[in-house]
Nucleic acid binder design. Structure first.
Lengths: 127, 127
DNA sequence: CTGTTTGTACGAATATCTTCGTAAACGAAT
DNA sequence: ATTCGTTTACGAAGATATTCGTACAAACAG
């Protein structure tokens, strides 16, 4: 079993931005981060340096302004976080999580259709 | 907006047990906890005392052996954790979370049926 | 070249979480 | 009453996360 990726709250916020934008400078990340929460520039910098030490991001330091990129796979991270959550908070029942998620995060009919399709495919494959 | 419930990892594990068992003593919780992870008794005790300070649990201290009970609603907590996760890690798309959850946490056909039913009901109500 | 801006590095203060040792209180058994 | 096992209270150490000030380097403007 691979060691689980366990980013902290703050690290996750940065990862999310990196996943969305692709390779970015500290300043770019910082500016987006600032919209969501109060933060000093060096704070963001330090966080990203730590993430680099931990291997959560890679960086290109060839130019003066370094460019950071997510080093952990988005889907893999999502999956790990979800599984942990299912285990602890939903006593192992994924469907309970699914219903809870759908119940309170108003989804469009299109999204619901997509999920329905997905369900059908899953059932086919299971045979 | 109510202040979000933000239990730590360890606190969540304890809450999960309390939700499952209902009111319990420290020893009862500790014994279950021990099956999942290494932990000293006083460690569990301290955690639950802190949770009491934070208002995550209530306790009946009338007898020598105190009895603890979850003070935060299970569904509400689940919802808040999920919403946060959807926002940060799934860029706001609940359906993406749903598919990710279903895809990797093999669910039984019964569970899938339950979800399908749930989807239908949701769509009806939305009209 | 000199001063200003923009960036990284580093270290330290602070906060929060986790763990556990030790002591005191209590009840039950001898 | 003394002892023994169980429980709570308290405090502190260790680990991890968060925040930011300061120093130094590079690029840039004049």
């Amino acid at each position: 079993m691979n060691k689980p990726i366990k980013p902290t709250e703050s690290e996750l916020e940065i990862l999310a931005i990196l996943w969305e934008r692709g390779p970015s400078t500290v300043r770019e990340i910082h500016e987006i981060l600032e919209r969501q929460k109060e933060a000093g520039y060096t704070t963001t910098l330090k966080l990203m340096q730590i993430m680099h030490e931990k291997g959560l991001v890679t960086r290109d330091a060839s130019a003066k302004t370094h460019i950071y990129e997510a080093a952990v796979d988005r889907e893999l991270t999502q999956r790990q976080l979800l599984n942990k959550m299912i285990d602890t908070v939903f006593k192992g029942s994924a469907s309970q999580l699914v219903m809870q998620a759908l119940g309170h995060h108003r989804s469009s009919p299109e999204e619901l259709d997509m999920i329905r399709q997905y369900l059908n495919e899953m059932e086919k494959k299971q045979k």
